[in-house]
Nucleic acid binder design. Structure first.
Lengths: 214, 214
DNA sequence: CCGGATCCTCGGTGATACTG
DNA sequence: CAGTATCACCGAGGATCCGG
């Protein structure tokens, strides 16, 4: 059950033994946006075999990174959530995601965007300095994915699923990466159909200012 | 040859596709201390099959993270070194190593310490603020591993192999982690035989001050 | 239907031997 | 020294089945 080790007394080796196996870090990424059920993870991690998901969850639980918690809505069952140790991985994942994102071109054939990967993209590109003094809630819709983004004074939060209905909603395509990369102005993004704004148009300007790859 | 993908348009997924396979990140870690030959890596990554090392090196080269460079000393041949893209992974590796190191107890049975893992431990625990204004070169010896550590005004550098012979040399055991963790004072470390100082005794105090897990 | 368990195939890894 | 070749084995991928 335990992952094969590297035989080295080294923090990096130990970390990789715990979560270096396939799908491991993506499970942690998904759980960064709150508790998920088995079925949620299966749907979000497109193509993961259920046996692998079962094994990873067990390993991560044994390693003390996640715990099982009972949930009641919309239906009673169990969910998985990060412990403090697991949550402590967020800065590392954000760093790694930023590294990959900055070297990533357009979507490859057949690649999908999940709500969790979108949330991750926001975390990797958030600019606290530009969000100073800002107070805004906006929705972000891409395909079936609905996120609620709350920006409040140099800090921000993403929740998956559109329970709340913000005053302004951005409908976007994956091409929005060009906006975040700085290769497209908000006006151009709207003109090219990359983004459509429902509500206050200044929401897009704020978004483009706060989420920017450097 | 190319690693299997995750099918997600996400920076983290892309990063894991490039270096999420077994041994990949440890190869990058080793190259953080400068160019390495095939035989160097084989010796440092204890237990890696040569076929796997060959494949990883090819993949990393294809991904643009490493390049082959000719070397002439001590013998002519080829070595592998990080490109700028590969070097850009250093902060991420340091973060991940710190996460693992802070949750790592004592050495497990059969675990070894390599010069590269030791250098990594120093990178993950270096405290720039405490090194402000400091100017010191010291040797660090653990078993067969010899490092030269240069601390200079809030910055530091590690080189593997003891070409230079610093005025002060620390001979340590893996138990030195207790000193770095703050669970041992320099005096106790010497008393318990965890560290022996050759040369200026204040070198150990500076070391303990500058390399400290928080 | 949710949350897995079981079975089978296939490709990557581990280990060793061998070669330019 | 720097890999290549070979092979056993285990874990991932994929589908199906099962208990609550």
């Amino acid at each position: 059950m335990a992952a094969r080790g590297y035989g080295q007394y080294c923090g990096l080796s130990r970390a990789l033994e715990l979560l270096g196996e396939r799908w491991g870090l993506l499970i942690v990424r998904d759980l960064l946006s709150g508790p998920h059920r088995f079925a949620d993870l299966e749907a979000s991690l497109v193509g993961i075999p259920t046996s692998v998901l079962t094994n990873r969850l067990k390993e991560l639980e044994t390693a003390g990174l996640i715990t099982r918690v009972p949930v009641h809505t919309p239906r009673r069952g169990t969910a998985y959530t990060l412990t403090d140790d697991g949550l402590a991985l967020e800065p590392t994942l954000v760093e790694l995601g930023r590294w990959g994102g900055s070297r990533m071109g357009g979507p490859r054939d057949g690649e999908v965007v999940t709500a969790e990967s979108l949330a991750m993209a926001l975390r990797t590109t958030f600019r606290p300095d530009r969000a100073a003094g800002m107070d805004r809630e906006l929705g972000l819709v891409m395909g079936d994915n609905v996120l609620t983004v709350t920006i409040r004074d140099a800090d921000f939060d993403v929740t998956v699923g559109g329970a709340a209905t913000p005053a302004s909603v951005l409908h976007a395509t994956p091409q929005i990466k060009r906006l975040i990369d700085g290769n497209l102005t908000p006006e151009e993004a709207v003109a090219e159909g990359v983004v459509r704004v429902d509500g206050d148009p200044s929401a897009l300007d704020d978004f483009a200012s706060v989420f920017r790859l450097d």
